[in-house]
């Protein structure tokens, strides 16, 4: 297998009950790349993303056919430890959802449940480190004990990123992480993504094509549950190979 490939999906079909949401999706997501997924809403981007860390298991009656591999390992095999999988593959949601706890407790939650830290001092170090990597430390260092709900929307989303980073994941899945944010906060999150890709493999769903063009190395275009085109971002936006892709990026639908 290819060392450059972090996640590989082979002829994946996904069903919500009898309704099929993904059709024969094949994709290879490269290590330490930012991979963007674009497409009109309802085309299956979130479904695809949530299939990667088996978040869809939580919805009763869903089923995946085909194969999803993380470092060559079958994600859906019965020997896969789903809890560990989700620890390794972190997720950032569209609506920022910090727990109604203090800022500190939010970041410390993951390490705590995963039993990563031996003592409080170690935990303090981790919390500071992750808040720094999420570019939030300077803004919150004086109010770690305050409720996370007191933060602004953009800060909350970066806190969620910090929370995800604290369990030392390998992959970050982001489902429209900036869609609910103002332009300044969006810019901060994008900057952060750019920083993070040095260490993490990132898959980001966005409905904003400029954003995809700005942050990603490779881009996939989804339409009606199919991966229509997958290419280097620059190529996909300047010289799309498929007619549907061109129609979409030139704004003819969606």
């Amino acid at each position: 297998m290819d060392d450059q490939i972090k996640i590989s999906v082979k002829s994946a079909n996904f069903f919500y009950g009898s309704q099929q949401a993904l059709h024969e999706v094949n994709i290879s997501i490269r290590r330490c790349f930012v991979t963007a997924l674009i497409g009109p809403s309802g085309c299956g981007k979130s479904t695809f993303l949530r299939a990667l860390n088996r978040m869809n298991d939580l919805i009763p009656g869903t089923r995946l056919e085909g194969r999803v591999e993380l470092d060559g390992q079958d994600v859906y095999s019965s020997s896969m430890d789903v809890i560990q999988l989700r620890r390794r593959v972190g997720m950032i949601f569209q609506r920022s959802n910090p727990f109604p706890m203090s800022i500190y407790e939010n970041v410390a939650y993951g390490p705590r449940v995963n039993g990563l830290m031996k003592n409080r001092a170690e935990l303090d170090v981790t919390v500071e480190k992750t808040l720094r990597s999420a570019a939030l430390w300077d803004e919150v260092k004086d109010r770690l004990a305050r409720s996370a709900m007191s933060l602004s929307g953009g800060q909350q989303q970066r806190l969620c990123i910090a929370r995800a980073l604290a369990v030392e994941p390998e992959v970050l899945l982001m489902d429209e992480p900036a869609s609910a944010l103002d332009p300044i906060s969006t810019a901060k999150v994008e900057e952060l993504i750019y920083e993070l890709k040095r260490t993490y493999t990132i898959v980001i769903v966005t409905h904003n094509m400029q954003q995809a063009a700005r942050v990603s190395d490779e881009t996939g275009f989804f339409l009606n549950g199919r991966l229509v085109e997958f290419a280097e971002t620059k190529k996909l936006f300047t010289a799309p190979a498929k007619r549907e892709t061109e129609d979409y990026i030139t704004g003819r639908f969606g």
Binding site: N53, M55, L58, I83, Q84, R86, R87, R88, G90, M91, F93, R95, N97, F99, P100, M101, Y109, G110, R112, V113, N114, C160, R163, A164, V167
Partner: peptide
């Protein structure tokens, strides 16, 4: 308690029981 909290907790590698005891019950 919004479903988002369950998803956030599970996505961090918490088990269901941990999610219930640490996130849902306190709320």
């Amino acid at each position: 308690v919004p479903q988002e909290y369950r998803e956030a907790s599970l996505a961090l590698g918490a088990t269901r029981l941990q999610t219930i005891l640490r996130v849902i019950l306190p709320q």
